[in-house]
Design a protein around this nucleic acid. Sequence first.
DNA 1: GCAGATTAACTACTTCTGTAGTAGATTGAA
DNA 2: TTCAATCTACTACAGAAGTAGTTAATCTGC
Lengths: 128, 128
Amino acid sequence: MPLPKLSKLELQIMEVLWQRGPCSVREIQESFPARKRPAYTTVQTMVYRLEVKKAVRRTKKIATALIFEAAVSREAAERRLIDDLLSVFGGKSRPIMAHLIESGALTLEDVREAEQALLKIAGEEKSE
Amino acid sequence: MPLPKLSKLELQIMEVLWQRGPCSVREIQESFPARKRPAYTTVQTMVYRLEVKKAVRRTKKIATALIFEAAVSREAAERRLIDDLLSVFGGKSRPIMAHLIESGALTLEDVREAEQALLKIAGEEKSE
DNA sequence: GCAGATTAACTACTTCTGTAGTAGATTGAA
DNA sequence: TTCAATCTACTACAGAAGTAGTTAATCTGC
């Protein structure tokens, strides 16, 4: 599979790797806000599972600790999430937009930016 | 909990109920496209679980069959999905929009419609 | 060189999801 | 009235996800 499905916790771990670059399990664990910090071995287990899924890879070893880095991009992982959501909505983004608006997360600026992006794409396609 | 999390298959079952109104397990099962139709008892199990989650309720009994109806609205369920997704993106819809565009699911019309909706809301808020 | 700290690797257990079989009750038709 | 079809209700099981303990190897400072 090109891009395996990542769970919520797995994504949070990937997030650390995307933000900070290669990290040890300890560094990943400590970057969780103290209140909701999972046990060291919990993070360790998740990192190993991500490794099996080829979402992270070992790069080197510093003293006793293995250093891991993301093997899939944030873009690709996020894209996967959106595609999954779209499949629930039958590929239509209309209802998604409606909910984003309802929840107050979508601003006029977001929309105008999206419009510009779409216009740009349309223009490029014409000239191909 | 006001709205329990629904899994993919649970959502597909809710979809049948939302579309067709009250149904028996048999009707739900048969409304799945033949190719990917789960066994009768699989649907039955899911419906019972939805019942435990209070997402569906029994309305009546026709002969031997129980008739179930949705106890949560499609709006609420979809809203829950979006909110979960938003939490992954830190509440920002910008990246979500970007991916929708990239995947080709978002059209200019969708965007213009969204813009109108937002303008309308802004107008209403001013006059309150 | 050794002891205490740190880590990797393995194992374990729970909940959720998807999947489905079985047993016993209920119907409806002949 | 009896029997086959249909249902409900219960049970089972595998895989993913979340959580974490244990054991044995490995460092590192003294």
